[in-house]
Design a binder for these strands. Structure first.
Length: 350
DNA sequence: CAATCGTGGCA
DNA sequence: TTGCCAAGATT
């Protein structure tokens, strides 16, 4: 095996991070392999998301749906509700699609090869490689943010991302060993997460200290270069929070496509410069002084909150009344939960 | 290729 | 407060 990969694997044997979905290196050496379903689930959840944020969600999902068949049989709304708060909700929609494809088209078994994995909804180049390597020990190369950073430093690559990706992928592939590819994939990512960090990397204790070109050049902390991103605009909107006399709340399921697609939310306006919207029903509307502020990936949102109490026989033009006993604020995406937190005090039913 | 798509933690 | 960042995929 290549010396450099071996050094990283030896470091991983001593410093592998413990995670609920991970089989530690000492067990993998004894032939223990992780459940592909759990690996796939973790990889989808970890897309652009921290390990700390994923842990409890992964446990919740595997507790409620222990197998891919269980997940495939789940109600859409239940899965979206369970995902609420984790963000990037297209992942949850594709997660369910993928589970159903695995059951109907692949006999309930995850494909083992990269090409077939790539055909699954929500599975791109990174996730396909991660599942193939970690769950099936195939010599695939994972290229995530960690690996991009590690490779750009080891080889002192100054080409800015994302243009540098093909180059970094080639470098990463050249290092990928044929032995223990699953542990190796996890090892590079652990290295990036704990040693070769974005700011102040711990080069002094790095297993790849000697071959690292950026450390030699003193450029490690400024790599990888990235194309500058523009700052985000502020948009405004209106949210209508309606409570019926029997305690029910007026909510609507958002369209499948677009922001917060498929998630539960308060009826409201579009979000833009000067939002206008008709209330979801005729009522005596009260405007809260406080607004709900939230930052998405590409814009800030400032939501004006309107509240109203309506009779038990009220009929809405938009949305559906959800009974008080059924409604769970935790099933809302964060921005909608912020609105609830601000509005609920005004809508207490005796 | 560039834009879209969440959230929470941290300097 | 602001900006950056985290195991990307899709269009």
């Amino acid at each position: 095996m290549r010396e450099q990969a071996l050094q990283l694997l030896q470091w991983y044997d001593r410093h592998a991070r413990a995670m609920p979905w991970r089989v530690p290196p000492e067990d993998r050496k004894n032939g223990v392999m992780p459940d592909p379903y759990g690996v796939w689930l973790s990889e989808v959840m970890l897309q652009q998301t921290t390990v700390a944020a994923v842990r409890d969600y992964w446990r919740k999902f595997t507790d409620i749906w222990p197998t891919v068949a269980d997940l495939a049989a789940a109600e859409d709304a239940e899965v979206m509700a369970a995902w609420a708060g984790l963000g990037y909700y297209a992942r949850a929609r594709n997660l369910l699609k993928c589970a159903r494809v695995v059951v109907t088209d692949h006999g309930g078994q995850f494909p083992r090869d990269h090409a077939t994995l790539l055909t699954l909804p929500g599975v791109g180049p990174y996730t396909a490689a991660a599942v193939a390597a970690i769950a099936f020990d195939q010599p695939e190369t994972v290229l995530d943010g960690n690996v991009e950073r590690v490779m750009s430093r080891i080889h002192d690559v100054h080409t800015p991302l994302p243009a540098a990706k093909p180059e970094l992928m080639a470098l990463a592939q050249a290092l990928t060993p044929v032995e223990r590819p699953g542990d190796y994939a996890q090892a590079v990512m652990d290295l990036g997460a704990t040693i070769c960090t974005p700011k102040s990397p711990a080069c002094g204790i790095c297993p790849w200290r000697d071959p690292c070109r950026a450390r030699m050049a003193g450029t490690a902390s400024e790599l990888p270069k990235k194309t500058p991103k523009k700052k985000v605009p502020t948009r405004r909107g209106i949210a209508y929070v309606t409570r019926r006399a029997d305690g029910a709340w007026l909510l609507e399921t958002r369209p499948e496509k677009g922001l917060l697609g498929g998630m539960l939310g308060w009826p409201g306006s579009d979000w833009g410069d000067a939002p206008v919207a008709d209330p979801p029903l005729d009522a005596d509307w009260y405007r809260l002084d406080a607004t709900a502020r939230h930052t998405f990936t590409h814009f800030h949102l400032d939501l004006t909150i309107m509240t109203a109490r309506v009779p038990a026989d009220a009929v809405a033009d938009r949305g559906d009344f959800i009974p008080h006993g059924t409604f769970r604020p935790a099933a809302l995406p964060t921005v909608m939960r912020k609105v609830y937190d601000l509005a609920s005090g005004q809508l207490i039913i005796d």
